[in-house]
């Protein structure tokens, strides 16, 4: 299952190649995220010894990329808040991996904290979308699918992180892994949907006239 989950990132990566021509910067951030996510999974799987370095770097890169994408989606309106969040979470991440990791049960992991930030950003974007009616047809609006992907994946992650801290049964851990992989596949598919819609319905004409 974890292999399927890992390789599912190739779908948005493949579609994302066509996105690079697009001027929509938030999609480029998400494309980079898909690439980083795939590389980090490959690294973690093939070189378990480096997990302790790869995962924290990936988590913070993910935080930076997703928040940057949201920054563009919110049209730079909340840029200061986002920079403040990135700075604050970077300090927390450094402190967490340096001192607090051993006290993980007391302090929320950077993973839970960033999931929470993404969940809030996603919910707020739904509100922003509803308030400003940015799209005529929501289902043909790439940021909607992107946002659904972020909401489902990170809400699920929060649930799983809480559950894994509460429940101790081994079976729960097995289900945790399956659900986590499924959420990752779903997220990648939703990102791919977003890319696909952006490619198919983009009215922009590239410089070479294609």
């Amino acid at each position: 299952m974890s292999h399927v989950s890992m390789y599912s990132a190739l779908i948005p990566i493949f579609l994302g190649i066509f996105i690079l021509k697009n001027r929509e910067k938030y999609l480029i951030f998400i494309f980079i995220l898909a690439v980083v996510s795939f590389l980090s999974d490959v690294m973690s799987l093939n070189h378990p010894n480096y997990r302790n370095i790869v995962l924290p770097v990936y988590r913070y890169t993910q935080l930076f990329l997703i928040l940057s994408a949201y920054n563009f989606l919110f049209k730079n309106v909340y840029q200061r808040t986002i920079i403040f969040l990135l700075g604050g979470l970077l300090i927390y991440a450094v402190l967490y991996y340096a001192y607090l990791e051993n006290l993980a049960r007391t302090f929320p992991s950077i993973r839970t904290l960033s999931s929470f930030v993404f969940l809030l950003a996603s919910l707020f974007y739904f509100y922003y979308l509803h308030k400003n009616l940015l799209a005529k047809n929501l289902l043909l609006f790439p940021p909607f699918w992107l946002n659904v992907g972020v909401l489902i994946y990170f809400a699920g992650n929060i649930f799983l992180n809480v559950a894994i801290n509460i429940f101790t049964m081994h079976k729960v851990y097995v289900i945790y892994m399956i659900v986590h992989s499924s959420l990752n596949i779903l997220k990648n598919l939703l990102f791919a949907t977003s890319f696909f819609i952006a490619i198919k319905y983009s009215k922009r004409i590239t410089y070479n006239g294609i």
Binding site: H130, L139, V148, A155, G156, F159
Partner: peptide, 24 residues
């Protein structure tokens, strides 16, 4: 524990799906 985990997961999924459908 397992039942609670599955039930709460299912409930959470339903709430989220409901939210997205309602939003759309």
């Amino acid at each position: 524990e397992l039942t609670i985990f599955i039930l709460s997961g299912t409930a959470g999924t339903l709430v989220m799906a409901g939210f997205i459908i309602y939003f759309v």
